[in-house]
Design a protein around this nucleic acid. Sequence first.
RNA 1: GCGGUUGUGGUGAAGUGGUUAACACACCGGAUUGUGGUUCCGGCAUGCGUGGGUUCGAGCCCCAUCAGCCGCCCCA
Length: 423
Amino acid sequence: MIQIPRGTQDILPKDTYKWQYIEQRLHKIAQNYNYKEIRTPVFESTELFVRGVGGSTDIVNKEMYTFKDKGDRSMTLKPEGTAPVVRSYIENKMQHDVNQPVKVYYQAPMFRYERRQKGRYRQFVQFGIEAIGVEDPLIDVEVLSMLMHIYQSFGLKNLKLYINSIGDQNSRAAYNQALVDHFRPSIHEFCSDCQVRIDTNPMRILDCKKDRDHPLVQNAPVIYDYLNDESKAYFEEVKQNLDALGIPYEVDYNLVRGLDYYTHTAFELMSDAEGFGAITTLCGGGRYNGLLELLDGPSETGIGFALSIERLLLALEAEGLELPEPEGIDLYICTLDESASTAAGRLVHKLRTEGISCDMDYKHRKLKAQMKDADRKGASHTIVIGETELDSNEAELKNMTTGESKKISLGDVEEIRTIIEEK
RNA sequence: GCGGUUGUGGUGAAGUGGUUAACACACCGGAUUGUGGUUCCGGCAUGCGUGGGUUCGAGCCCCAUCAGCCGCCCCA
């Protein structure tokens, strides 16, 4: 038997309503904030991610699905959504669009070759937004408020928003150097992971679970002190505006993002809820001021976030929240013999084209089994057709909730519609 | 990529070398002939992730492989 590839999943018919519900909600909220959908290809030139995401990141180093196409071009299934959107912005010269800033959202599968765990997939669906063309604390706050709005609209409670400012490339470099200087002399006292981190990602030492009580961690330099005055002022203004909107957050000076392009405002939304295992991040994002130029674009800046629908569903499950199930069909037609089936087939076709959702039995089951089937399919009404009904062209239209029946004429679609719509 | 753990019908699960693989739910059929959600009765895995091996004999032992889960790493 051929199995589904590791880290991927089938979303089965019994569950798709959840996805459809979430997708609709997301489209609607995006519209509220006046973001328009953008659709970019599933794969892009590998170079886009190498340059855009950063050659030193895990994503680029070991997680990309990269392949050569038949023209010997290196292509990569997109591992994240921002670089493609920025590529499209640049290519389509959106800095000249009449609508500024350019506010877009996307929802698409992303691919990362990682070891699977709960909430971590090799193919997962990200919903994300990008606001490009404006650098103002207010747009940062708009992005954050939309993010919170989304999660709260589903009734989620155990949410924690962490924010930080990681400054520009210069202040980050200076800060990293300060950390290396701080830890290097005593690095042998730290765990083996941290001894590697000091060379790869010094900031990670700060939230190491093993060494969190080490005195050098406690009194380590704080990134805020390495920000220039403008960055500090920007960050303060973001915080003030979040306060004004009553959006709760926590400043986490150790918050870093795994992609090189982030600058200034960085944030992450975590879930407190039980049942997440090692996965706690629901959504991440931040400002990317150098990215457009890095990709040969105009000197515009942007900010955005991305969330995974899979993890949103996990969060809902962890908090015991359920999404509304779709309604069943309007009508199920039971048949008693061959000629009734033939007639039912024609009636069902006619009703469907008139906008009434209906179904019938195709397995020649007994009446009792058909009624059960109607029940399972959530039919609000049923009709039984047999010899009597075929002769008189009349039938009982039964309301499955009340159990009451009304006599109707089989050819009269409007009569049937009226009764069905009474509910 | 590393470490640990699990894998039995549609689902949850018993079963740790020896005849016909428990049980529950679901499903299908029946309980005097054309009406659902209750009850009762009956049926339902030649097969125990996959491929090898050990043995007179394996779901139970060994090896490999695939997949899930947990932890690390990292992230959405």
